[in-house]
């Protein structure tokens, strides 16, 4: 009788332990998914901000039609892009187009004094940061999750319930790494 009770207890503890491990895996996988959707949220936010920016800038930058059009086109391409690889590339193009727009804006003192423009610039560059940080968070979450899938003891559970490793977010445009260091010393 006593042996049976001990057996039941051991089984119960084991089951609870397995449930616990399973739940940590689910939590880690959800963190990955959540981080991925955060990237989309920030990309969408950037798409929404661009028309406002163009509207503000238009009056000042009369001779920069090409730069403005490049941004518009890149935005359209980014919105219509499908698939991870294509989206990544299109969004990279959009980042580049925005960067050159802000670079050109440097030579328009009136524009730089415009409160609306400054607010939009802060908003857009911060959104750019948020996109990058959400990718970073995605990679962090993916590493956490992948470690769990690979390491004892969670790897046993992962194998049983078909938890697969997720892929890291790779840089789409290698040239982005070589952005020259802009000094902004006071």
């Amino acid at each position: 009788m006593l042996g049976f009770i001990i057996f039941i207890v051991i089984v119960a503890v084991l089951v609870i332990w397995v449930i616990g491990l399973y739940n940590t895996l689910v939590r880690a996988r959800n963190a990955v998914k959540n981080a991925w959707s955060q990237i989309d949220v920030q990309l969408k936010r950037r798409h929404d901000l661009i028309p406002n920016l163009l509207e503000t800038v238009k009056g000042y930058m009369k001779h920069e039609r090409e730069t403005l059009e490049a941004v518009t086109q890149a935005r359209t391409a980014a919105i219509n892009a499908g698939g991870v690889a294509e989206t990544g590339k299109a969004e990279g193009m959009l980042s580049g187009a925005l960067k050159s727009l802000f670079a050109v804006a440097e030579s328009y003192p009136d524009l730089k004094a415009n409160q609306n423009f400054l607010a939009l610039q802060e908003e857009l560059t911060s959104t750019e940061n948020k996109i990058a940080f959400s990718r970073q968070a995605y990679n962090d979450a993916t590493m956490q999750y992948n470690n769990k899938v690979q390491m004892v003891p969670t790897n046993i559970i992962a194998g049983m319930f078909n938890f697969k490793e997720e892929e890291f977010f790779e840089i789409e445009i290698p040239t982005e790494r070589e952005v020259p260091k802009v000094s902004f010393s006071e």
Partner: peptide, 18 residues
């Protein structure tokens, strides 16, 4: 793990923010 600074180049970040 590729982080923001490694991915986008450190200069991109705060330097661009007005």
């Amino acid at each position: 793990v590729p982080g923001l600074r490694q991915m986008e180049g450190a200069a991109l970040l705060a330097a661009a923010v007005p």
